[in-house]
Nucleic acid binder design. Structure first.
Lengths: 197, 197, 197, 197
DNA sequence: CATGAATGAGTTTTCATTCAT
DNA sequence: GATGAATGAAAACTCATTCAT
């Protein structure tokens, strides 16, 4: 325990190397050799640990998806005993999204790139779609009132996530200050909370 | 007049060919030869009409920017004599954005791609940023009350455009129906209008 | 007339370079670069003139096929006015096969190689099969008696060609002297002629 | 006795794995890993049991050669007491060749491949040549009249084997029916028998 | 004996760009 | 203006072989 197999360790190192590479260059200009160099691993090994360059990207998306999923579940634990109102819980969820996802410029940079790739590569598209679907579904779960179901909550949840992504895009492109990005989102989220009452 | 120089005509054809190419393949996988073939022009000529492959992309972004700018100005003419309230004008502006930009899947597809390129290529980034800045500024102009200035109107305008882009992204990725995309945006825009009152 | 287009000239040079390469190394160990060097042409150009490495091989087979077909038709002209008996004509045909094909060690070397490739590559297989089918059909034409048709002439023709190929194989592998190879075939062919009477 | 050393057992398994691999892919496209996987043995072990990839092929040829040699000797035992004429014995020998070798499509497939390799690899060439020499010599032994020696019997034996190989080649390439292949050979062999009388 | 990891050289293929005609 | 030809660099991927454990 604690000692990971070399295989898993290397795979992880490669995925982290891809992360750092994507901060500098687009995926299409990032060669297998680049990733290998960044990871300090002979480039031929990347084909030993992964099926193909695309496979690396796919696993990378999964790893990101899992990382944030775990982070979110962990974050929820902090409030699970507190007996909060739906409004309070949602504020907490929004805050998580704002601080850990949308204002993380590195993450946003990489996701703008991945969205671009997803348009043309079906496998990537599937992964990305799945990831966002889960996010939207989860968010909708927190937004739904305990008593009855509201049909348009799903659309609302999608709107919220779409907005987050739009803001993430702009925060990267316009190099917005974290404070401003937060303000932008919080104002919008406040409106959403009102709509749910 | 009316007879464009052959140079301008050819340049336009090349730009339109790039548009069609980008519907099929990412920019990085679109070769100069592909664009040439699509345009029916020998690929060596593309370097005669443009400095480089990137120059084509840059001019392409400008052309899109100008096209929609012109389209918008033309659209405004329809209502310029009608003596509408700010609310009515804004609704009109939103409607233009919704129908001509955000729900145009081809356009959105290409812009998701361009956003991705813009992260890493400064020249592309500058063009894209300029284009969105103008859009935001223009929109803010319509949102500002005639009497006084509201400092946070600029943020609000950016929020609106960010939301549009987020929705555009999702409409492409989730292949949303035009009707649903419209509904998503109109609900949000209604809130914005309320906030301005 | 006489001035071939560069394209055709280059394609021919490349095919001839492949011929020389195949005398030294198997196709699988002959790289595009090797062929390019042998032809004195930058290796990237080979992909300009041909679709792929396999395409070069396919065209090569066709070129061989056409060359010998033309050579054979030309050879037949020598005897077309002479009003020979079927036996005499067949002897002439056999002689052509013996001297121009089966005892040409370079050609046989290359064809042993090509037979090997044909087993696994359907496109190559199709070309080779077509070539031999035509050869067998043509030969059967000369073997058929003018008055009536003999059903098993086709099998006999195939047997003759199979024998030629077997002898070609052995002449390469055992490095047989031309004289011996000829003797082997002529004895066999004599029997065939007897069978036809 | 009966219990083969593990080394010999593993070597045999590897050789059999190569046989199955060669039914699917040419030797040049068959990797050491492929053979290992097919044999259920770690690929690094193949270098423990054999010197190199080529060594495996060489041993494979030997194993085939020995297998058929043993099979043939075993087959001859069936008739050794029967006091047959030379003609009858030869018919038996031909029948063995026809049924066990030339119409065994898998075997022929592999041998077409091996012929191809033999042209360029001296070590392989030596093995193949040795194998066929033995076959021809053995066959010549059966063809020679007991009273005197006929100088050209050796050529005749080679012609017979060459014909078999030619037919084997064609039966694979033209996917001939076993029945037709048999008929082709038997007609030819009948002529040979006549020539020997 | 057995295994997974590692390496370096090699493969086919693509492409932006340039140039002679 | 227009074209086909040419180039050199780079890409993803494969593999026989070796080695540490």
């Amino acid at each position: 325990m604690g000692r990971k197999s070399i295989r898993e360790q290397r795979r992880k190192e490669i995925l982290e190397a891809l992360y750092r590479c994507l901060l500098r260059k687009p995926y299409s200009e990032t060669s297998i050799k680049d990733i290998g160099m960044e990871a300090g691993i002979n480039h031929a090994m990347l084909h030993y640990y992964f099926r193909s360059k695309e496979d690396i990207l796919l696993c990378f998306i999964d790893s990101i998806s899992e990382r944030y999923s775990a982070l979110f579940r962990h974050d929820l634990k902090k409030i699970e005993r507190k007996d909060l109102t739906r409004r309070e819980i949602l504020k907490h969820v929004f805050h998580f999204m704002n601080t850990h996802i949308t204002t993380d410029k590195k993450l946003q940079t990489i996701f703008v790139e991945i969205w671009g790739i997803a348009i043309y590569k079906p496998a990537v598209h599937a992964r990305v779609k799945k990831m966002y679907s889960e996010w939207i579904r989860e968010l909708a779960g927190f937004m739904k009132p305990s008593n009855g179901a509201a049909a348009d909550i799903d659309s609302l949840a999608m709107a919220v996530v779409a907005f987050q992504e739009g803001v993430g895009l702009f925060s990267v492109s316009f190099d917005l200050k974290k404070k401003d990005t937060m303000a932008l989102m919080e104002a919008f989220q406040e409106k959403i909370l009102e709509m749910l009452e």
